[in-house]
Write a protein that binds this DNA or RNA. Structure first.
Lengths: 186, 186
DNA sequence: GGACTCATGTAAGCTGTTACATGATTTC
DNA sequence: GAAATCATGTAACAGCTTACATGAGTCC
């Protein structure tokens, strides 16, 4: 789903500035999407040009430039249609799994260090999502979004921990193929 | 991680054509990375130009053009270094979770249909990974790659099933905000 | 003979990121 | 008064996908 559509969606939840939308992405979409300012601001401009959102400089603004956007009725209709038409896909790119896939080409200490990093990352993501769950006073859909994120992180973390020692032990025992450049020739 | 690096990695596992690499990606990387021909072929050309892989037209080929690539020693060293230097990140883009996030803007029947689609998708991914696990006679790292994929899919599927009915019930009960365009104005 | 798989390649175009440029406001 | 946060924007560039173009081999 394009950043443009996501911005329109964000504005269907309430008026916001580009900056607010970025914050929303970081706070709530964190574990399943993201976007940078460099795509958000142009997207909002584009949406305005298409009449899907309207923009007003905030009245009584403390700041000269603060563009507050609202979804128009047309915009809401458009977003509902876009939602209904999106395939519920998932696109995962995990450098971590690539690393594991090629683990036999890494020295043990580096592998161990990567595993530590990943565990920490999963832990902090888990902690963050659990915090969201505690606070969350929202729709059933959003709550499910959080539940699925927690379940997936937990499952990955548990699996990793369960296999970690065996992986490292075997890794140390088997002469690493990375030391001899001719040992993995086809 | 760039397709170029991934191709180099694939060639560290054994000689292959561009076509073979695509197959490998589909078979083994399926749940955590992917690449199209349009990026693989140019990547191989580039790697060859950099001396990281060598290419020979297959000897005694049944087919005039079949470019079999091999990683050179320099290529193997380069890949090992690239691996050691990659942060074990995960980049997830889930249209499905976006859909859930905005579930209140969808009519119940469409939501239900999306949930069905996702369940089926997770089921078939799970089936595929479990098949891989049964067959798999590979490195500990690759096996862990599969275990993590299974655990994550299973966790998401279970969570979805556990909350599905409650979500749909509540969705039907609460007057959907998508019917009245002014009902979610900020 | 038709369909499918094997096999390679290019070019246009889309999308988004990074990095830069700018400056006000708030908090300590 | 320094640092952090709020706030907007652009331009260059990267990287990948899609679609096209081509054709041999294999299976039914």
């Amino acid at each position: 789903m394009h950043v443009k559509t996501l911005c329109l969606g964000a504005l269907c939840l309430g008026d916001a500035t580009g900056y607010d939308i970025k914050k929303l992405f970081e706070a709530a979409f964190n574990h399943f999407h993201h976007a940078s300012f460099g795509s958000i601001y142009p997207a909002l401009k584009q949406l305005e040009k298409e009449g899907l959102v309207s923009c007003r400089v905030e009245p009584g603004s403390r700041h000269p430039t603060r563009n507050l956007y609202s979804a128009t009725d047309e915009g809401r209709a458009e977003f509902a249609a876009a939602l209904a038409g999106t395939e519920p896909n998932e696109d995962i790119r995990s450098e971590f799994l690539v690393l594991l896939f090629f683990a036999h080409l890494l020295p043990t200490d580096i592998l161990e260090q990567k595993l530590d990093q990943v565990e920490q990352r999963y832990e902090s993501q888990l902690a963050y999502l659990e915090m969201l769950r505690r606070e969350s006073d929202t729709t059933a859909g959003i709550r499910l979004t959080i539940e699925i994120g927690i379940a997936a992180s937990r499952a990955k973390l548990d699996t990793l921990r369960r296999h970690r020692d065996a992986l490292l032990k075997q890794h140390r025992d088997i002469p690493a193929s990375w030391t001899e450049s001719d040992s993995c020739t086809a």
